[in-house]
Design a protein around this nucleic acid. Structure first.
Ligand SMILES: NC(=O)c1ccc[n+]([C@@H]2O[C@H](COP(=O)([O-])OP(=O)(O)OC[C@H]3O[C@@H](n4cnc5c(N)ncnc54)[C@H](O)[C@@H]3O)[C@@H](O)[C@H]2O)c1
Ligand SMILES: NC(=O)c1ccc[n+]([C@@H]2O[C@H](COP(=O)([O-])OP(=O)(O)OC[C@H]3O[C@@H](n4cnc5c(N)ncnc54)[C@H](O)[C@@H]3O)[C@@H](O)[C@H]2O)c1
Lengths: 211, 211
DNA sequence: CCATCCTTGTTATATTTGTAACAAGGGATT
DNA sequence: AATCCCTTGTTACAAATATAACAAGGATGG
């Protein structure tokens, strides 16, 4: 099985968003060139990325937007729903529960956990906040596949361990720490500190980064 | 001037965090090997990353933690404060204002903007929410260098344009859209949709990604 | 003081990733 | 039907990035 690079996956995601946008605008087809311009990459890159998964275009014409959109959705697993468990209903956690776009795209926060007795039992945007004491059991019972970690750094690794114990196979981690997981679990980090520090570097050393 | 890769910058950020952690734990020195293990990279990678900026270690002994930490801070511009303007005090915006770690690291949200009359004038975590009507002027007056964009997609590009007009040189963008900026402005995107979709891809095609 | 063991910094090599080039497919036009 | 544009998919090439290898610096212990 050919390995797909991280960059390709990221770009697929961005092509997908462009396709949704172009579809809403009423377009029927799109060329690799336009898709490239919209995402600041080369047309060759777009065609090569797509060619990893098949031949979706028509020579001379480009890609049918609806068709390509559907194909990318299938490839990326966006043509289904995913059950998500959110751990840590603080500032970030609340923002995520409130954010409807995730649900629209199929990521359903079915359970949320917190350790704060003052929060347990409350309902936010239709989601009941549960006691994290029963996390493993609840996650397993609800057949959750993805866990979101928005607890403080000090609790992050243990929450991850418990999510994994509950059968979760993918983790989106907001805690700025390098969490460890078994080989068969996937982790993506959303590390805002890294991004803003990268900005700091760029502004400090403008000659060392390509504008 | 040698170009520094994005990956190297990201890793420097992570090494920096490890150094802070090890320092708090009371360690004096650290080897490239330990630094590597903590960040899931090879020791050669660590040494090569650091060697882009100088020779900070002592052969046979490793790196002095305090010294290396200070050097990375200097290299990345983390030994100073940055004035930050936050645009869009919604769910994400509020979370960022509330988050003390940014301030501790030198990123000071000095001004915040919103267009909602119900929010303008309110104070969150010591920051007054201003009317976005005067954004350019306020940003310029306050000598803001970094702008954070946490407004809806529909307003993102125009807010970016105005931040740039106000003299901002770096932008941290949370809106899931490919914003356009002049050549001399740096942008970093914090796109949660991409990360969770990457998880979806990995869980859908486990054979195509390296665990 | 010599031998031994570490660990760095750097150079050389391998791998991955991105770009360019182009043949072949396909529609439109005359 | 022949010609002329376009645009894809793929292959060949270039650049960037990561890994490995190793010489030289330095500590430690007898
Ligand atoms: N807020 C930000 O802007 C921001 C930015 C970058 C990174 N982060 C990171 O994101 C994470 C969450 O940040 P936040 O600002 O939302 O923090 P927060 O303090 O607002 O929320 C954390 C929540 O986790 C809960 N919690 C603590 N331990 C728990 C446990 N063991 N099980 C379940 N719940 C538990 C707390 O009760 C609280 O509700 C932190 O790791 C933080 O470093 C936040
Ligand atoms: N909430 C999440 O979890 C989440 C996740 C991924 C991406 N995002 C993105 O982050 C951005 C912010 O999300 P949010 O959930 O905080 O949205 P939100 O609706 O809670 O907040 C947006 C804020 O921006 C303000 N605003 C609108 N137009 C403005 C303008 N022209 N100038 C100044 N302020 C303006 C609104 O009044 C509101 O307070 C959006 O682009 C969203 O797509 C959010």
């Amino acid at each position: 099985m050919p390995r797909i690079s991280d960059s390709t996956i990221h770009r697929l995601s961005r092509y997908y968003r462009t396709l949704k946008y172009m579809h809403d605008k009423g377009s029927q087809t799109i060329s690799s060139n336009i898709l490239a311009q919209q995402n600041d990459v080369t047309a060759a890159q777009v065609r090569k990325d797509l060619s990893c998964f098949g031949a979706f275009g028509r020579r001379g014409l480009g890609y049918d937007i609806v068709d390509l959109k559907r194909n990318i959705a299938r490839i990326m697993g966006l043509d289904r729903t995913w059950k998500v468990a959110l751990c840590g209903v603080g500032n970030i956690g609340r923002a995520l529960i409130d954010y409807d776009q995730f649900r629209v795209q199929g990521f359903q926060i079915t359970v949320a956990f917190d350790s704060d007795p003052g929060k347990i039992g409350k309902v936010i945007h239709g989601v009941v906040i549960r006691n994290e004491a029963n996390l493993e059991r609840d996650v397993r019972d609800e057949k959750v596949e993805i866990g979101v970690v928005s607890v403080p750094v000090s609790s992050a690794q243990s929450i991850v361990d418990r999510l994994v114990a509950g059968g979760v196979r993918g983790i989106l981690n907001f805690a700025p720490i390098n969490i460890k997981v078994p080989k068969n679990v996937f982790v993506r980090n959303e590390n805002m500190a890294i991004e803003i520090e990268a900005l700091s570097f760029a502004l400090t050393n403008p000659k060392m980064v390509q504008y």
